[in-house]
Design a binder for these strands. Structure first.
Length: 598
RNA sequence: GGAGGCGUGGUGUAGCGGCCUAACAUGCAGCCCUGUCAAGGCUGAGAUCGCGGGUUCGAAUCCCGUCGCUUCCGCCA
C-alpha cells in the first residue's frame, strides 16, 4: 500500500474516491460489529470505519489494533450518515470505509496519554519525548516554531538579507557568560569554546562586505537554567552595514510587527513600540525589561520621606539612597499575614524591609502614622494617586535595591490583580543604557553589553572623564516583562576599540592576543555596522503562550542540564580522556583548587 | 552555592499519626454491543506511598538525611 492522503486532508468533496491513509491509532471505539478508529498523523485525524460486511479481514485486524499502533488503511471515502458528522474534526464530514488494512507496527501501551491534554510529570514526558511530541499541544508548538522561523527567513530574504552559517567550534572569549569548552585532540591542551553568540563572526562578515546578514543561530551558555533559559538556545542573529541605531530599530520593529500580525493570535498593545530610556525604565518600573501590559508606576517619594520623622527613611537618604513607593489598587484590606507575605517577598529580593500603608475607611493604617503628619499622609496618597481601599508599599534603600524590590513587587501586584492579559503583547524598546559598569571585585570598568558596543556620539568625550555617564548605542526589545532581544551599533575603528579595551582593564598585549584579528580587520576598511539578536525560543514562547521554554524546544534539558531522553551528559572512559590529554580531578582536589584560586 | 514547592497503582489526583486490608477518575485486560467520536455496559488485574534513617505501641502521614523534577535568588557580555 502507498499513502495517498494525510489524515487531515479528506473532505466531503472527496466522497466516493479511494484513499490510503497511514498513521497512528489515536482511539479505537468498538461497537462489537462496527469498529471505529481515529487515525492520526501530523496533519490531523480521520475516522476509519471497519464494517465486517465490507471486509471481514480488515475488521478482525481492527479488533487487535490498540492506541499508538502504526497502521495503513485502504478504503473508500464516504460521507458520514445524517447526524453522524463531527464538527470538531476538520475531516469530520467524512470517514474512510476500510476495505484493506495492515498493522505496520504494534505499540506498547504508552506511559501517558497521547490523545488527551493532561498534565503529566515532566521527567516522564522528557524521557519519552518522542511520545510527548505526538501530543497535540507540544506538536503544535513545534509546528508553530517552524512557521515563525520560515516567516522570518522569507521576510529577511525579501529584503536582501543573506543567511550565513558561522562556526560552532570557536575561540574562547573572556567576559560575559561562561562558555562550554571542547578539548582539541589535535592541539593537545587547547580548547575550543561553543559560541555564546556569533558576535565576532557577524562583525567580520560586515568587514567582508556581506552588508545584510542573518542567521538562525544556535547559542550556548554554561549558566544555570531558568523557565526561559536553556544552555543551548536559538537566536535570530542579524547584522547590517551602513546603518545607525534608528535603522536597526525600524527594521526589527517592522519584522516583529509583521510576524505577530501574520502568525500570532495576540493583540499588539502599541504600534509603534514605545521607547523608554534605561533610566526611565529603572525609575518607573524597577526593571530594564518592564512589563508594560499594566501601569502601576513606581513613584519617588524621597522628598516627602526626608521630611518625615522615620529614621529608616532618613538613614537611607543620608547614605545616597532613595525612598520610593508603589500603589497596589484595592489591596488596602490585606490582613497582617498577607502584608507579612509581601514584606517577606521584598526581603527575599534584597530589601531590608517594606513599609506598608493601608488606606482604610477610618484613615491610613500604617506604622508610619507615628512618624508622619496627617498632611504628609495625604500628600503621600496624592503623589501615588491612591484612593481609599488601596495599599501603598514603600522601600527605602540603595537605588538598585529599591528598583529590584519595588520592580518585583509591581509584578507580584500585577499578578495578584490579574493585570497581565495573556492576549496582549506589549513590546517596547529600552534605549540609552550605560556603556560600562564598575567591577568592584576586579577594580576596573566592564562592558554592560559587550566590548564592541559603540558609545553614543554625544557621550564620547566622557570616556576619559566620567566613564559611568557614557551611554551606549544599545537597544533591547522587551515584551511582557521578558527581554526578547538586544543589540547595538558596533565600534568600527581600531583606536576607539583599543580605548575601550584599555578602559575595561585589558592590557594592549591581552587585547591583541584575544581580539587582534578584530583590531586588524578594522584597519582594512570596515563599514559602520550594527545588529540585533531576538531570541527565537522566547518569541515562540510569547506567541504560543507557552509557560516555559521547554515547551517550544523539541529536545530540552532539565534544570540540572540533563537530557533525559538520551542521558547526556555522560561520563567517558579514561581512554577517551587520555586521547584528549585530560585527566579528571578528584572531587576533593577540585574543591581545594577552586577555593585557592577564586 | 542558597531559598521555596512537588514526589502515593501505567497516568492524574485524594488521603496528611490508628477508621489504609490505601480511595477516586482514567488507562489496561476480558466479555457484551452495527453509527460511535472522551462511545456505552458488566467483570477483573494493578501501588508496602521516591530512597535511607529516626520518633512512636503504631508512619503514606511527624523529624532528619538523600535523590529527582520544578520555581526563584546568585549567575545569564
Amino acid at each position: 500500500m502507498e499513502r495517498t492522503h494525510t489524515c487531515g486532508q479528506l473532505r466531503a468533496a472527496d466522497a466516493g474516491r479511494e484513499a490510503t491513509l497511514m498513521g497512528w491509532v489515536n482511539r479505537r471505539r468498538s461497537l462489537g460489529g462496527l469498529i471505529f478508529i481515529d487515525l492520526r498523523d501530523r496533519e490531523g485525524i480521520t475516522q476509519v470505519v471497519f464494517n465486517p460486511s465490507i471486509s471481514a479481514a480488515a475488521h478482525s485486524l481492527a479488533e487487535e489494533m490498540r492506541p499508538e499502533y502504526v497502521v495503513a488503511v485502504h478504503g473508500v471515502v464516504r460521507l458520514r450518515p445524517e447526524g453522524a458528522s463531527n464538527a470538531n474534526l476538520a475531516t469530520g464530514e467524512v470517514e474512510l470505509e476500510a476495505t484493506q488494512a495492515e498493522v505496520l507496527n504494534p505499540a506498547k501501551t504508552p506511559p501517558f496519554y497521547i490523545n488527551e491534554d493532561a498534565e503529566i510529570d515532566e521527567p516522564l514526558r522528557l524521557r519519552y519525548r518522542y511520545l510527548d511530541l505526538r501530543r497535540a499541544k507540544v506538536k503544535n508548538n513545534i509546528l508553530f516554531r517552524h512557521r515563525v522561523v520560515k516567516y522570518i527567513r522569507d521576510w529577511l530574504d525579501k529584503r536582501g538579507f543573506v543567511e550565513i552559517e558561522t562556526p560552532i567550534l570557536v575561540k574562547e572569549t573572556p567576559g560575559g557568560a561562561r562558555e562550554f569548552l571542547v578539548p582539541s585532540r589535535i592541539q593537545q591542551g587547547s580548547f575550543y569554546a561553543l559560541p555564546q553568540s556569533p558576535q565576532q563572526f557577524k562583525q567580520i562578515l560586515m568587514v567582508a562586505g556581506f552588508d545584510k546578514y542573518f542567521q538562525i543561530a544556535r547559542c550556548f551558555r554554561d549558566e544555570d537554567l531558568r523557565a526561559d533559559r536553556q544552555p543551548e538556545f536559538t537566536q535570530l542573529d542579524m547584522e547590517m552595514s551602513f546603518v545607525d541605531q534608528e535603522n536597526v530599530l525600524q527594521i526589527t520593529e517592522s519584522l516583529l510587527t509583521d510576524l505577530v500580525e501574520s502568525l500570532g493570535t495576540h493583540r499588539l498593545l502599541a504600534k509603534p513600540f514605545p521607547r523608554l530610556t534605561y533610566d526611565e525604565a529603572m525609575a518607573k518600573y524597577g526593571s530594564d525589561k518592564p512589563d508594560l501590559r499594566f501601569g502601576l508606576e513606581i513613584v519617588d517619594i524621597s522628598d516627602l520621606a526626608g521630611a518625615s520623622e522615620f529614621k529608616v527613611f532618613q538613614a537611607a537618604l543620608a547614605t545616597g539612597g532613595q525612598v520610593k513607593a508603589l500603589r497596589a489598587p484595592g489591596l488596602g484590606h490585606y490582613s497582617r499575614r498577607e502584608l507579612d507575605e509581601l514584606v517577606q517577598f521584598a526581603q527575599n529580593r534584597g530589601a531590608k524591609g517594606l513599609m506598608t500603608v493601608e488606606l482604610a475607611e477610618g484613615g491610613p493604617k500604617s506604622p508610619l502614622t507615628k512618624f508622619m503628619t496627617a498632611g504628609q499622609m495625604d500628600r503621600l496618597a496624592q503623589l501615588l494617586n491612591a484612593q481609599r481601599g488601596d495599599l501603598i508599599l514603600i522601600v527605602a534603600d540603595r537605588p538598585d535595591v529599591v528598583a529590584e524590590a519595588l520592580g518585583q513587587l509591581r509584578l507580584e501586584v500585577g499578578r495578584r490583580l490579574n493585570f497581565m492579559d495573556p492576549n496582549l503583547l506589549a513590546f517596547a524598546w529600552v534605549l540609552q543604557m550605560p556603556l560600562l559598569e564598575w567591577n568592584d571585585q576586579e577594580g576596573h570598568w566592564q562592558s554592560k553589553h559587550h566590548q564592541f558596543t559603540m558609545p553614543m556620539d554625544e557621550d564620547l568625550h566622557l570616556l576619559d572623564t566620567a566613564p559611568q555617564r557614557v551611554r551606549a548605542k544599545q537597544y533591547d526589545v522587551v515584551c511582557n516583562g521578558t527581554e526578547v532581544g538586544g543589540g547595538s551599533i558596533r565600534i568600527h575603528r581600531r583606536e576607539l576599540q583599543e580605548k575601550i579595551f584599555r578602559l575595561i582593564g585589558m592590557s594592549d598585549e591581552e587585547a591583541r592576543g584575544m581580539f587582534g584579528h578584530m583590531l586588524e580587520a578594522f584597519e582594512y576598511g570596515t563599514p559602520p555596522h550594527g545588529g540585533i539578536a531576538p531570541g527565537i525560543d522566547r518569541l515562540v514562547m510569547l506567541l504560543s503562550g507557552a509557560e516555559n521554554i521547554r515547551e517550544v524546544i523539541p529536545f530540552p534539558k532539565t534544570q540540572s542540564g540533563v537530557d533525559l531522553l538520551t542521558g547526556a551528559p555522560s561520563p567517558v572512559t579514561r581512554r577517551r580522556l587520555a586521547d584528549l590529554g585530560l585527566t579528571l580531578l578528584p572531587e576533593a582536589a577540585r574543591t581545594a583548587w577552586q577555593s585557592d584560586n577564586p
